[in-house]
Each structure stands twice: as C-alpha cells, then as structure tokens.
Design a protein around this nucleic acid. Structure first.
Length: 318
RNA sequence: GGCCGGGUAGCUCAGUGGUAGAGCAGUGGACUGAAAAUCCACGUGUCGGCAGUUCAAUUCUGCCCCCGGCCA
C-alpha cells in the first residue's frame, strides 16, 4: 500500500523472445536474406558467447569477434574470452590478432570484418558478428563511411599543449557544425574533428561521415538481462576471473613491458590489477573498482542498444 | 538492568524551530579512425515510532523501539 520509491529506469525492452520464437525468426530471416549477417550484441556478461555458439552450431555460423578488448593476445582471462573447448568447432575470427601495444580503430576493424564476412559467404556459411563494442557493430551494419584520415601522431603531439577550451574554440571557427555536436570537454572527439579538418585541407568531418548503402542484411539479436541481475552476473564473473589466474595474466603482461599506458590497458580490470600488483591499490579496492567499472560499461552498452528499433531481444536466463 | 553515543538518500555522514544537503553508489543520454575509451545531465527522502510544547517540529520535551560502547 505504501508507494515504492523507485529509481527512474528506462523500461526493459519488450517483447523478450523465447528460444523457439527466436529460432523461427532466424529461419525466416535466412530464407529471405541475400547476404545475411547475424549480429549478437548486448552488455558484457549477459550471455552473448554461449548464445552465439548455440546459433552457430544450428545454422552453420562462423563468428567474427566484435569485442575490441578481445583482439589482444595474452588478454584472455580478464576479457572473459571464449575458451578453445567452448568454441565447439565453430570458427572464430578477429580474436588474438594484436599485441597489447597495437591498436585497431573502427576503420580498420570495418575493413577486416567486411572481408571476413565475404569469405564466410563464399563458404556458404552464416557470418555472425558477436560482441559488445557498439560502434564497431554499427559500423558494419550501417556501412559507415569513415573519413579516410588515419590518426596523425605528429599532429596530435602538436596539440598536446592546448587546453580543451582552446581546441573547442578552434573547432567552432573551423567546423561550427561539428562543434555543435560535440561536448566542449570531449577532447578526444574535438581533436578528431580538428584533425580531419586540418589534415584534409579544410574538409568538415560532418560532411565526410556518412552511411553507405547497406552491404549486408543484418539480423540484430540483443541479449538482455535486467540491470540488477546483470550486476550480480558481473559480480560473479569478476570473482571468477580473479580466481582463475587473472593476476598471473596481468603480471605476465607487466613482465613483457606493458604498462597502464599501453593502448590495450584501457580495459577495465587490467588497470586495477596492475595497480594492485604495483602495490598502489589494495586488492579489495582493485576488485571493487573492476566490478564498478564493468557495471558502468554495461550501462553504456544498454544505452547504446536500447535505441535500436529493429532488435530481437532474448534473455538467456529465462 | 544502569549510563553514554547514535538512528536523516542505496552506503558513509553534514545540517536546520519554517518539511533538508554533500561524497560515493546509482540513473538518463551522446557516440563514425583512442570506443571496456571519452563526454553531458540528474538528488522527495514516512529526517526510527508515538505523543506533547508551538502558529509551525526532522530540529525542543517525554515515552517506546533498534544499533554500538561502557558499567553491573
């Protein structure tokens, strides 16, 4: 009778499909699609991996990883990468192809993934894009035209001394439209827009960023768990990671000379573990921060996918 | 059983005779070559319960309940 005070939350997606209905939808989709692509997305720890294996086995799928931290060699435990025996003969691509000091930005990923998709089609199998990195999945689905201006290390170095305010002001003058779309303090995006302008000799990033004609017929499957349930899953997974040799894995990365500054180490978990190993963060605190940062990441992923109208949602726990 | 502290947002706690605020947690959102990144916005809660004083009580008083500590 007393009204419950509730945190204002966006409603859960609906409907949530049963496994049977999902099967029907996949069958129908595959019958009609000319160049099919099944994308399985959703927050971390929601159960994408095992669902992807079930689907791959039933429909001759081959899996392309779309999880940007799983590109890296030697980062298996902390990224909850699929184990060899869990693959159950299903081919996997774009896993373990980078060293931690290398990077694979969206544009590169897109090229690699598109190529893989074509190859899989040639084998008459079904390409499946599986992973949590929303931008990367969308780049493929929507066939993003990404301005062909690679990052310019020297240019960026030059800008290091500038404050974000100065950079933003510069952008307002050069590309007012872009400036309007970017937050004043979002240095990364401001820099990118400026970089495109300067290096291309005055082209505006907003003019260059387009969606091309769709290359693939995509079926979007979203894996959903309610936030509280997911928080629990994240807790369990983190405990599990911690007990499965995560510290040794991190230690060996340190021994290879990688540090918190190494590109791959923006991954949550590894940073905290490194701080613990160096003695600057107590173990409990490191673990706590890892869980918290994972939860926050999951929330951003929810936000990313929630807006999708053409999504088929499933919940693996029911 | 007696004495002393406390009970205020999910947590840790400020505070006021005119129905309240900070940190953390959390929530909503943005996202095209750094994306597990980066950035923006958001604080109504029976101020433990009941009664009394008062124009007015979360604030003062009394009783009760709960949690710590000390003494028996």
């Amino acid at each position: 009778m007393s009204e419950k005070k509730k945190v204002h939350r966006a409603p859960s997606p609906h409907p949530i499909l049963s496994k049977e209905n999902l099967s029907i939808i996949i069958d129908t989709f595959l019958r009609k699609a000319k160049k099919p692509l099944i994308a399985i997305v959703g927050p971390t720890a929601s159960g994408k991996t095992s669902l992807s294996i079930q689907i791959a086995k039933k429909w001759k799928g081959e899996i392309i990883n779309a999880d940007s931290r799983q590109f890296y060699k030697g980062m298996d435990i902390g990224t909850a990468k699929i184990l060899p025996e869990e693959k159950q003969e299903v081919p996997h691509f774009l896993l373990d192809f980078l060293n931690p000091d290398e990077q694979c930005p969206v544009a590169v990923f897109k090229k690699l993934a598109d190529k893989k998709i074509e190859e899989i089609h040639k084998r008459n199998h079904i390409p499946m894009l599986v992973g949590g990195t929303g931008l990367f999945v969308d780049a493929i689905r929507h066939n993003f035209c990404i301005p062909k201006i690679p990052p310019q290390p020297e240019w960026r170095k030059q800008k290091e001394g500038h404050t974000s305010e100065q950079l933003y002001k510069e952008l307002t003058e050069k590309d007012p439209h872009a400036a309007k779309c970017i937050d004043k303090k979002n240095r990364i995006r401001i820099l990118r827009a400026l970089e495109v302008y300067d290096v291309s000799g005055g082209n505006k990033i907003s003019d260059l960023q387009k969606k091309g004609e769709k290359k693939w017929d995509t079926l979007l499957i979203g894996v959903w768990q309610d936030p509280d349930a997911l928080a629990l899953a994240i807790k369990k997974r983190t405990e599990n990671i911690w007990q499965s040799g995560f510290l040794q894995e991190t230690q060996s990365l340190l021994e290879k000379g990688y540090t918190e500054e190494t590109p791959a180490m923006i991954a949550h978990g590894y940073r905290e573990a490194m701080q613990f190993l160096k003695g600057t963060l107590p173990e409990e605190e490191a673990k706590y921060q890892m869980m918290r940062n994972t939860r926050r990441y999951a929330k951003r992923q929810r936000t990313w996918w929630r807006r999708e109208k053409k999504m088929y949602w499933v919940n693996p726990t029911i």
